[in-house]
């Protein structure tokens, strides 16, 4: 049963990877921005996995871990967006987002620990 689950998961992942890698794109794109569009889809799948854990997580710390990982993934989104567009304020958004998510996670961890906010 466990092996069956593993094989079905592998099949799903391979199908998704094949769709992302070989789906047709407009031919006027250079191959670099073509690659970046596919990288964006790949990161979206990672973010969907985090969302799955946020929805299904049996306990509150599970959800907190998934939220933390989602925050770091969004920095990756910003980095990928800033290469083809050539705008440098996307990476500014990434920096600010990393700071914000760090503060939020620290507050969440303190809440889980059951202490006051000023220890």
């Amino acid at each position: 049963m466990k092996n069956l689950n593993w094989i079905s998961g592998l099949v799903v992942i391979v199908i998704m990877a094949a769709v992302i890698l070989f789906c047709p794109v407009p031919s006027m794109l250079s191959w670099q921005s073509n690659f970046l569009a596919r990288a964006f889809l790949w990161l979206l799948i990672c973010a969907m996995m985090c969302l799955f854990r946020i929805l299904r997580g049996p306990t509150a710390p599970d959800r907190a871990v998934a939220v933390d990982m989602l925050g770091i993934l969004i920095v990756g989104f910003c980095a990928i967006l800033s290469l083809p567009t050539g705008r440098d304020w996307y990476i500014d958004i990434g920096l600010a987002w990393a700071l914000q998510s760090f503060i939020g996670i620290m507050a969440l961890a303190k809440y889980l620990e059951g202490k006051d906010f000023d220890e």
Partner: peptide, 13 residues
């Protein structure tokens, strides 16, 4: 740091 804080919070909760 945030991973450490989350692990500690999970144990304490």
């Amino acid at each position: 740091v945030s991973a450490h804080a989350l692990a500690r919070g999970a144990y304490r909760s």
